[in-house]
Protein backbone atom coordinates (compact mmCIF):
# COMPACT_ATOMS: atom_id res chain seq x y z
CA UNK A 1 0.00 0.00 0.00
CA UNK A 2 1.34 3.39 -0.91
CA UNK A 3 2.04 6.15 1.53
CA UNK A 4 -0.48 8.28 -0.25
CA UNK A 5 -3.34 5.93 0.50
CA UNK A 6 -2.36 5.66 4.16
CA UNK A 7 -2.98 9.34 4.57
CA UNK A 8 -6.40 8.96 3.05
CA UNK A 9 -7.45 6.77 5.90
CA UNK A 10 -7.90 9.43 8.52
CA UNK A 11 -10.37 11.74 6.87
CA UNK A 12 -12.23 13.00 9.91
CA UNK A 13 -12.15 16.58 10.92
CA UNK A 14 -10.84 17.35 14.37
CA UNK A 15 -14.25 18.47 15.57
CA UNK A 16 -15.87 15.04 15.34
CA UNK A 17 -14.70 12.38 17.72
CA UNK A 18 -14.29 8.88 16.40
CA UNK A 19 -16.79 6.35 17.67
CA UNK A 20 -15.26 3.25 16.16
CA UNK A 21 -11.76 2.59 15.05
CA UNK A 22 -10.33 -0.48 13.34
CA UNK A 23 -6.60 -0.83 13.85
CA UNK A 24 -4.64 -3.15 11.65
CA UNK A 25 -7.57 -5.57 11.49
CA UNK A 26 -7.06 -8.88 9.73
CA UNK A 27 -9.93 -11.36 9.66
CA UNK A 28 -9.44 -14.96 8.58
CA UNK A 29 -11.85 -17.69 7.59
CA UNK A 30 -9.76 -20.73 8.39
CA UNK A 31 -6.49 -19.78 6.70
CA UNK A 32 -7.79 -17.45 4.04
CA UNK A 33 -7.94 -13.78 4.90
CA UNK A 34 -11.19 -11.91 4.23
CA UNK A 35 -9.91 -8.58 5.52
CA UNK A 36 -6.24 -7.62 5.51
CA UNK A 37 -4.60 -5.03 7.75
CA UNK A 38 -7.49 -2.60 7.62
CA UNK A 39 -7.30 0.75 9.40
CA UNK A 40 -10.55 2.65 9.51
CA UNK A 41 -12.14 5.28 11.71
CA UNK A 42 -15.87 5.91 12.00
CA UNK A 43 -16.73 9.51 12.94
CA UNK A 44 -19.63 10.37 15.21
CA UNK A 45 -23.06 11.25 13.81
CA UNK A 46 -22.02 10.63 10.25
CA UNK A 47 -22.93 7.98 7.74
CA UNK A 48 -19.93 5.99 6.64
CA UNK A 49 -20.33 3.56 3.81
CA UNK A 50 -18.17 0.61 2.90
CA UNK A 51 -18.29 -0.32 -0.76
CA UNK A 52 -16.57 -2.86 -2.92
CA UNK A 53 -17.19 -5.85 -5.15
CA UNK A 54 -18.76 -9.06 -3.79
CA UNK A 55 -16.46 -11.02 -1.51
CA UNK A 56 -14.21 -8.05 -0.74
CA UNK A 57 -14.65 -8.47 3.01
CA UNK A 58 -16.84 -5.47 3.64
CA UNK A 59 -19.59 -7.36 5.48
CA UNK A 60 -16.98 -9.32 7.43
CA UNK A 61 -15.40 -6.11 8.65
CA UNK A 62 -18.81 -4.67 9.56
CA UNK A 63 -19.63 -7.76 11.61
CA UNK A 64 -16.32 -7.38 13.44
CA UNK A 65 -17.58 -4.04 14.82
CA UNK A 66 -20.11 -5.78 17.07
CA UNK A 67 -18.41 -9.14 17.42
CA UNK A 68 -20.97 -10.98 15.30
CA UNK A 69 -18.22 -12.98 13.61
CA UNK A 70 -17.87 -14.96 16.81
CA UNK A 71 -20.78 -17.13 15.76
CA UNK A 72 -18.76 -18.39 12.79
CA UNK A 73 -16.52 -21.08 14.28
CA UNK A 74 -13.72 -20.88 11.71
CA UNK A 75 -13.51 -17.08 11.82
CA UNK A 76 -10.60 -15.45 13.66
CA UNK A 77 -9.39 -11.88 13.99
CA UNK A 78 -6.12 -10.06 14.55
CA UNK A 79 -5.68 -6.39 15.35
CA UNK A 80 -8.04 -4.35 17.48
CA UNK A 81 -11.34 -2.57 17.23
CA UNK A 82 -11.79 0.40 19.49
CA UNK A 83 -15.15 1.71 20.61
CA UNK A 84 -14.72 5.13 22.21
CA UNK A 85 -11.08 4.25 22.69
CA UNK A 86 -11.61 0.87 24.36
CA UNK A 87 -10.83 -2.40 22.62
CA UNK A 88 -14.08 -4.37 22.35
CA UNK A 89 -12.09 -7.58 21.99
CA UNK A 90 -10.36 -7.18 25.36
CA UNK A 91 -10.52 -10.09 27.78
CA UNK A 92 -12.95 -8.53 30.22
CA UNK A 93 -15.39 -7.19 27.63
CA UNK A 94 -18.77 -8.92 27.42
CA UNK A 95 -19.90 -9.23 23.79
CA UNK A 96 -23.49 -8.89 24.97
CA UNK A 97 -22.67 -5.41 26.24
CA UNK A 98 -20.96 -4.51 22.96
CA UNK A 99 -23.96 -5.55 20.89
CA UNK A 100 -26.30 -3.63 23.14
CA UNK A 101 -24.56 -0.40 22.21
CA UNK A 102 -23.72 -1.22 18.63
CA UNK A 103 -26.89 -2.33 16.89
CA UNK A 104 -27.18 -4.10 13.60
CA UNK A 105 -29.57 -4.33 10.67
CA UNK A 106 -29.13 -7.30 8.37
CA UNK A 107 -29.21 -7.80 4.65
CA UNK A 108 -32.43 -9.77 4.63
CA UNK A 109 -35.21 -8.43 6.85
CA UNK A 110 -35.31 -10.85 9.78
CA UNK A 111 -38.17 -9.90 12.09
CA UNK A 112 -38.98 -12.37 14.85
CA UNK A 113 -42.06 -14.47 14.09
CA UNK A 114 -43.96 -12.55 16.74
CA UNK A 115 -46.15 -9.48 16.93
CA UNK A 116 -44.89 -6.10 15.72
CA UNK A 117 -44.98 -4.86 19.29
CA UNK A 118 -42.97 -7.79 20.63
CA UNK A 119 -40.37 -7.37 17.92
CA UNK A 120 -39.54 -3.88 19.10
CA UNK A 121 -40.09 -4.40 22.83
CA UNK A 122 -38.12 -7.63 23.18
CA UNK A 123 -34.59 -6.20 23.03
CA UNK A 124 -35.16 -3.59 25.75
CA UNK A 125 -37.13 -6.10 27.83
CA UNK A 126 -34.32 -8.65 28.01
CA UNK A 127 -31.84 -5.88 28.74
CA UNK A 128 -33.76 -4.77 31.79
CA UNK A 129 -35.64 -1.75 30.44
CA UNK A 130 -37.97 -0.55 33.16
CA UNK A 131 -39.90 2.26 31.53
CA UNK A 132 -43.19 2.04 29.70
CA UNK A 133 -42.65 -0.31 26.78
CA UNK A 134 -45.54 1.22 24.82
CA UNK A 135 -43.86 4.61 24.83
CA UNK A 136 -40.58 3.10 23.73
CA UNK A 137 -42.16 1.04 20.96
CA UNK A 138 -44.00 4.07 19.65
CA UNK A 139 -40.95 6.30 19.62
CA UNK A 140 -38.80 3.63 17.97
CA UNK A 141 -41.43 2.99 15.30
CA UNK A 142 -41.80 6.72 14.73
CA UNK A 143 -38.04 7.09 14.34
CA UNK A 144 -38.10 4.28 11.80
CA UNK A 145 -40.95 6.02 9.91
CA UNK A 146 -43.18 3.02 10.39
CA UNK A 147 -45.56 4.13 13.14
CA UNK A 148 -48.34 5.47 10.93
CA UNK A 149 -48.45 2.29 8.91
CA UNK A 150 -48.62 -0.14 11.82
CA UNK A 151 -50.10 1.76 14.78
CA UNK A 152 -53.47 0.01 14.39
CA UNK A 153 -52.07 -3.48 14.21
CA UNK A 154 -49.24 -3.64 16.71
CA UNK A 155 -50.44 -7.03 17.90
CA UNK A 156 -50.51 -8.67 14.50
CA UNK A 157 -47.62 -10.70 13.23
CA UNK A 158 -44.55 -8.94 11.88
CA UNK A 159 -44.42 -11.50 9.10
CA UNK A 160 -47.54 -9.93 7.59
CA UNK A 161 -45.62 -6.75 6.74
CA UNK A 162 -44.09 -6.08 3.33
CA UNK A 163 -40.35 -6.50 2.84
CA UNK A 164 -39.69 -2.78 3.13
CA UNK A 165 -41.85 -2.50 6.24
CA UNK A 166 -40.10 -5.51 7.77
CA UNK A 167 -36.74 -3.88 7.21
CA UNK A 168 -37.92 -0.65 8.83
CA UNK A 169 -39.25 -2.77 11.69
CA UNK A 170 -35.78 -4.27 12.06
CA UNK A 171 -34.37 -0.73 12.16
CA UNK A 172 -36.97 0.21 14.80
CA UNK A 173 -35.99 -2.88 16.74
CA UNK A 174 -32.36 -1.77 16.68
CA UNK A 175 -33.31 1.81 17.62
CA UNK A 176 -35.37 0.67 20.61
CA UNK A 177 -32.12 -0.43 22.23
CA UNK A 178 -30.97 3.20 22.05
CA UNK A 179 -27.62 2.20 20.66
CA UNK A 180 -24.92 4.64 19.74
CA UNK A 181 -23.96 3.02 16.49
CA UNK A 182 -26.08 1.20 13.92
CA UNK A 183 -24.34 -1.18 11.56
CA UNK A 184 -26.24 -1.89 8.38
CA UNK A 185 -25.30 -4.79 6.17
CA UNK A 186 -26.71 -4.06 2.70
CA UNK A 187 -30.05 -3.13 4.24
CA UNK A 188 -31.71 -2.40 0.90
CA UNK A 189 -30.45 -5.24 -1.25
CA UNK A 190 -33.63 -7.26 -0.81
CA UNK A 191 -35.95 -4.27 -1.30
CA UNK A 192 -37.66 -2.54 -4.21
CA UNK A 193 -36.69 1.04 -5.20
CA UNK A 194 -39.57 2.69 -3.31
CA UNK A 195 -38.71 0.91 -0.07
CA UNK A 196 -35.06 1.68 -0.67
CA UNK A 197 -35.84 5.40 -1.00
CA UNK A 198 -37.82 5.18 2.25
CA UNK A 199 -34.86 3.71 4.09
CA UNK A 200 -32.40 6.18 2.62
CA UNK A 201 -34.58 9.10 3.76
CA UNK A 202 -34.66 7.46 7.13
CA UNK A 203 -30.85 7.30 7.30
CA UNK A 204 -30.59 11.07 6.88
CA UNK A 205 -32.98 11.59 9.76
CA UNK A 206 -31.22 9.08 11.97
CA UNK A 207 -27.72 10.44 11.67
CA UNK A 208 -28.53 13.35 13.97
CA UNK A 209 -28.67 10.93 16.85
CA UNK A 210 -26.81 7.87 15.67
CA UNK A 211 -23.57 6.98 14.03
CA UNK A 212 -24.26 4.81 11.02
CA UNK A 213 -22.02 2.42 9.15
CA UNK A 214 -23.56 0.99 6.02
CA UNK A 215 -22.21 -1.72 3.78
CA UNK A 216 -23.56 -1.57 0.27
CA UNK A 217 -22.74 -2.86 -3.16
CA UNK A 218 -24.88 -0.13 -4.63
CA UNK A 219 -22.48 2.71 -5.43
CA UNK A 220 -25.23 5.22 -6.11
CA UNK A 221 -26.59 4.52 -2.68
CA UNK A 222 -23.22 5.15 -1.09
CA UNK A 223 -22.87 8.37 -3.07
CA UNK A 224 -26.36 9.52 -2.10
CA UNK A 225 -26.43 8.81 1.60
CA UNK A 226 -22.96 8.67 3.05
CA UNK A 227 -20.56 11.32 4.32
CA UNK A 228 -17.53 9.06 4.16
CA UNK A 229 -16.82 6.17 1.86
CA UNK A 230 -14.36 3.33 2.20
CA UNK A 231 -13.53 1.23 -0.84
CA UNK A 232 -12.40 -2.35 -0.31
CA UNK A 233 -11.08 -4.82 -2.79
CA UNK A 234 -10.05 -8.41 -2.00
CA UNK A 235 -9.93 -7.63 1.69
CA UNK A 236 -7.71 -4.57 1.35
CA UNK A 237 -8.84 -1.03 2.11
CA UNK A 238 -7.92 0.78 -1.10
CA UNK A 239 -9.22 4.21 -0.28
CA UNK A 240 -11.12 6.01 2.44
CA UNK A 241 -12.26 9.58 2.37
CA UNK A 242 -15.14 12.01 2.14
CA UNK A 243 -17.74 10.61 -0.19
CA UNK A 244 -17.53 13.56 -2.62
CA UNK A 245 -13.83 13.17 -2.94
CA UNK A 246 -13.91 9.37 -3.34
CA UNK A 247 -16.50 9.56 -6.07
CA UNK A 248 -15.29 12.64 -7.96
CA UNK A 249 -11.54 12.81 -7.32
CA UNK A 250 -10.44 9.35 -6.21
CA UNK A 251 -6.79 9.16 -5.26
CA UNK A 252 -6.41 5.56 -6.36
CA UNK A 253 -6.73 4.22 -9.86
CA UNK A 254 -8.68 1.13 -8.71
CA UNK A 255 -11.22 3.30 -6.88
CA UNK A 256 -11.78 5.35 -9.98
CA UNK A 257 -12.26 2.25 -12.08
CA UNK A 258 -14.75 0.85 -9.58
CA UNK A 259 -16.84 3.97 -8.99
CA UNK A 260 -17.05 4.65 -12.71
CA UNK A 261 -18.37 1.15 -13.19
CA UNK A 262 -15.48 -0.36 -15.09
CA UNK A 263 -15.52 -3.49 -12.92
CA UNK A 264 -17.27 -4.98 -9.91
Amino acid sequence: MTQESKEQQTPTSATRPNVLEARDVTILYGDSPAVRNADLVIPEHQISSIIGPSGCGKSTLLRAFNRMNEFIPICSMKGSILYRGDDIYDQGVDPVEVRRRIGMVFQKPNPFPKSIFRNVAWGPAINGYEGDPRELVESALRSAALWDEVKDRLDSSALGLSGGQQQRLCIARALAMQPEVILMDEPCSALDPVSTAHIEDLLFALKKEYTIVIVTHNMQQAARVSDYTAFFETGVLIEYGETDQVFTRPAQKRTEEYVTGRFG
Binding site: V96, P111, F112, W122, I126, N127, C170, A174, M177
Partner: peptide, 27 residues
Protein backbone atom coordinates in the same frame (compact mmCIF):
# COMPACT_ATOMS: atom_id res chain seq x y z
CA UNK B 1 -34.93 -22.48 13.09
CA UNK B 2 -33.35 -19.97 10.71
CA UNK B 3 -29.95 -18.64 11.76
CA UNK B 4 -31.12 -15.13 10.93
CA UNK B 5 -33.46 -15.26 13.93
CA UNK B 6 -30.57 -16.12 16.27
CA UNK B 7 -28.41 -13.39 14.72
CA UNK B 8 -31.19 -10.84 15.16
CA UNK B 9 -31.47 -11.76 18.83
CA UNK B 10 -27.73 -11.72 19.48
CA UNK B 11 -27.41 -8.37 17.71
CA UNK B 12 -29.86 -6.94 20.26
CA UNK B 13 -27.56 -7.91 23.09
CA UNK B 14 -29.30 -11.15 24.01
CA UNK B 15 -27.47 -13.92 25.78
CA UNK B 16 -27.55 -17.44 24.42
CA UNK B 17 -30.11 -18.46 27.00
CA UNK B 18 -32.41 -15.53 26.20
CA UNK B 19 -32.15 -16.32 22.50
CA UNK B 20 -32.92 -19.98 23.00
CA UNK B 21 -35.74 -19.36 25.45
CA UNK B 22 -37.58 -16.62 23.54
CA UNK B 23 -36.90 -17.46 19.91
CA UNK B 24 -35.31 -20.82 19.18
CA UNK B 25 -37.53 -22.93 21.43
CA UNK B 26 -40.85 -21.29 20.51
CA UNK B 27 -40.04 -21.70 16.83
Amino acid sequence: VPGSIRQAAYALGATRWQTVRDHVLPS
